[in-house]
Computed example of a mutant assay.
Amino acid sequence: MDSLAARSRVRSRKRFLLAAMGCAGGMVLFDQTVVAVALTPMARDLGLDAAAMYRVVLIYVLSLSSLAAVVGMIARRFGFPRTVRCGVVLFAAAGWVVLRSRRPVLDLRLMRLRAFAVAVALTFLVQAGQLSLMLHAAVHLQQVEHLSVLTSGVALLALVVPLGAGTYLSGRLRDRFGSARAATVTGLACAAAGVAVWTSALASGDPYWQIPGMLAAGLGMGMPIPALSAEMMNSVPDDARADASVLRQTLRQMGGAFGIAVIGAVALTGKDRTANGAGVFTGAATVAGFVGAGVFLTLAFVLALTMLPRRTDLTPP
């Protein structure tokens, strides 16, 4: 009887942890969507041109990536549950914790593990494409299609909702095939194809024609990350999983910053085509952003196809 009660408590704790992780991931996606949708009215109110809009997003993403490392150290020192409950208060002590710690903020030695390094590289590339795509899509809907902030946010649900569905499908595929390869390769192929379809529909000027591409891109981009996260955690020893999680999340956010920086630099080199005299984006900027996102996703697809194993040993080293 006691054994049954203990197993029930363990299952309850696992469900709570899974729900907490799901909510946290949803909050990050929601936050990125809000930033993308709010960028245009913020630029209009503050008089920001196209270059300044890119800088705003870069500051946001770089801040997020740096805080991921700091919060990871706090969780490693004080424990995950206490960090979640007291996170807001502990932010004030972040600097003190980093300075007093004898361990590095980011344990880059984990990159010597081939499976971990490949999964991190893929996560980096996926985030570079995903954040760039979401940013340019939100700006396009408002500045080119002239939709309101609310309407553009609703329109982006065609991208965001399939992302959630993709995360669910990712776990099912990994369990069935025993590795992250099936979910990652399939997802990236779907995402790259969706971006191509979406880009070709931009010229129509009708947001409804963009929905098929949005659905495919969202579903595809939602599939790699959960499977790759499991692959990363499985590739490191148990006592290094906290460090691995911190490094993964930090480099993932840095991937988003890298994507915005590269695509923004390319778009701004053709500023006469991508922005008008007031610094407002034109359709050419959207195409540049979408093509850049497609390139990152295609690179990730090639890397996954050539480097991910067909099956993974479920016993960590």
Rank of each mutant, 00 (worst) to 15 (best):
M1D: 04
D2L: 12
L4H: 03
A5K: 12
A19P: 00
C23N: 00
C23A: 11
L29M: 10
F30I: 06
D31P: 01
V34W: 05
L46P: 01
Y54K: 04
R55D: 12
R55A: 12
V56H: 00
I59R: 04
I59V: 15
L62Q: 05
L67K: 00
A69T: 09
V70E: 06
G72F: 09
M73F: 02
I74K: 03
A75K: 10
F78G: 01
F80R: 11
R85H: 10
R85W: 12
G87H: 11
G87Y: 10
V89Y: 11
A94R: 10
W96R: 14
V97N: 04
L99F: 12
L99N: 05
R102Y: 02
L110Y: 05
R112C: 04
L122T: 06
M134L: 15
L135W: 13
H136I: 14
A138C: 05
H140D: 12
Q142A: 06
Q142M: 03
V144N: 12
L147V: 06
S148D: 05
V149S: 07
L150H: 13
L157C: 13
A158D: 08
V160W: 14
V160L: 15
V161C: 10
P162L: 10
G164R: 07
Y168I: 15
G171N: 07
R176K: 13
S179E: 13
A180C: 03
R181D: 02
R181S: 07
R181L: 02
T184G: 08
V185L: 04
G187P: 07
A189V: 03
C190G: 02
A192R: 01
G194I: 03
A196L: 14
W198R: 06
T199K: 00
S204R: 04
S204L: 12
A216L: 15
G220I: 00
M223E: 04
M223S: 03
E231Q: 10
S235H: 00
D238P: 00
A244S: 03
L247E: 07
R248L: 05
L251I: 03
L251R: 00
Q253Y: 15
A257I: 02
A257H: 03
F258C: 14
G259E: 02
A261M: 07
A265H: 09
T269I: 04
G270P: 09
K271F: 10
R273L: 15
T274R: 03
G277T: 14
G277W: 09
G279Q: 11
V280R: 12
T282P: 05
G283N: 01
A284L: 01
T286S: 15
G294S: 05
T298N: 08
L299N: 03
F301T: 11
M307E: 11
T312H: 08
L314K: 13
L314I: 09
T315G: 04
T315N: 09
